Amino acid sequence: MALKAFTSGDLYRRFKPHLLMVLAQIGYTFLYFITEASFEHGMNPHVYITYRHIVAGVVMLPFAYFLERKQRPKLTIALFAEIFILSVLGVGLTLNMYFASLRYTSPTFLASMVNTIASLTFIIAVALRLEDLDLGNPRVIAKVVGTLVSLAGVMTMTLYKGPIMAFTLKRYPAQLSLTTWMSFVGAAQSAFFTVIVEHRKSAWTMGFNIDFWSTVYGGVVVSGLIVFIQLWCTEVKGPVFVTMFNPLSTILVAILAYFVLGEKLYLGSILGAAVVIIGLYSLL
């Protein structure tokens, strides 16, 4: 019995990162649907981004403050400028475009597009000479083929019915604190942008309905809990391990969209998703 208990505990410790990443992808899957329901209810995507990251910043602030007091470096003007740019690319600009596109596409398409992040990152890294393009190296050839196949899969789904900012992490290694700063700065940037494009004061009003719950879910679960899970798994298993689970969300979204929302599942969607996943794993 003792040996069995030890074996079970050992298996749990061994596969704990895998289990957490599966739960994270399930969390992302529900995010697509709850935000789409909120947008159909009338929630402005830009207001949603602003409120969501205010919630995320407030939730993560005490954890960042108490857990990283000794490792948090001094915030200089230059470092804050880097965080500001990182917030633009990671929150203010990217997420506003990301969720605005949900109004014009579908959860399945949006989840599939996430799988191109690794491919596009590789292309940008090569263009900026952060990655060597040695075609005599089999590993590089696999990356190139995986990139092309992954992008081809997205094109199939569509038509057939900056480098990674790791430089800031090196200068500001307190990840929880960095995420908290990005949440607050990104929320401010999103609010500034929203004021320009949205002149209705009523758009900022939120009742105790799907709009409220989608904001709380996005802020607490996704920008809080899931980000923490990804940071922990990245530290334990590495960033490639975390990226490998992205296709799971694509599959789950496609299944739920078909059975729950009655979204039409075209042959091109199935083939495109399969090609994207194959390309992604070839790249990784």
Rank of each mutant, 00 (worst) to 15 (best):
V47L: 08
A127S: 12
L3V: 05
R69H: 11
L256F: 11
F63R: 01
P247T: 03
V144C: 15
L256G: 14
K170W: 01
A37E: 06
G218S: 13
E68S: 11
I270D: 03
L89I: 08
Y104C: 09
S150R: 00
A273K: 00
L93S: 10
A64C: 06
D132W: 03
L261V: 03
T7I: 10
A188D: 06
Y266R: 10
L61V: 03
I123P: 09
L19F: 14
A100D: 12
F193Y: 15
A81S: 13
Y65S: 09
P247V: 00
W181P: 02
S249Q: 14
R171A: 13
T179E: 15
K4D: 13
I164M: 11
F84M: 11
R14Y: 05
A152W: 01
V221S: 10
E68N: 11
S150E: 05
L11W: 07
K161W: 03
A274Y: 00
I270Q: 03
L128I: 06
S38E: 03
E68L: 05
A274G: 14
H18S: 13
G262V: 00
I26V: 13
A273E: 02
E263Q: 14
A81K: 14
Y160K: 13
V242M: 07
G146C: 11
A203P: 06
V260T: 07
N209I: 07
W232S: 07
D134Q: 14
V58K: 07
A125H: 06
V197A: 15
L23Y: 03
N137E: 09
L3F: 05
G153D: 03
I229D: 01
A254W: 01
A174Y: 07
M60H: 05
Q71I: 00
V220T: 10
P163K: 08
L261I: 02
F6P: 01
A166R: 12
T35A: 06
T168Q: 03
A118N: 08
F228Q: 10
L102G: 04
S214G: 14
E40Y: 08
H53W: 10
L130V: 04
T76G: 15
A111F: 04
L271P: 00
M113Q: 11
V216M: 15
G57D: 07
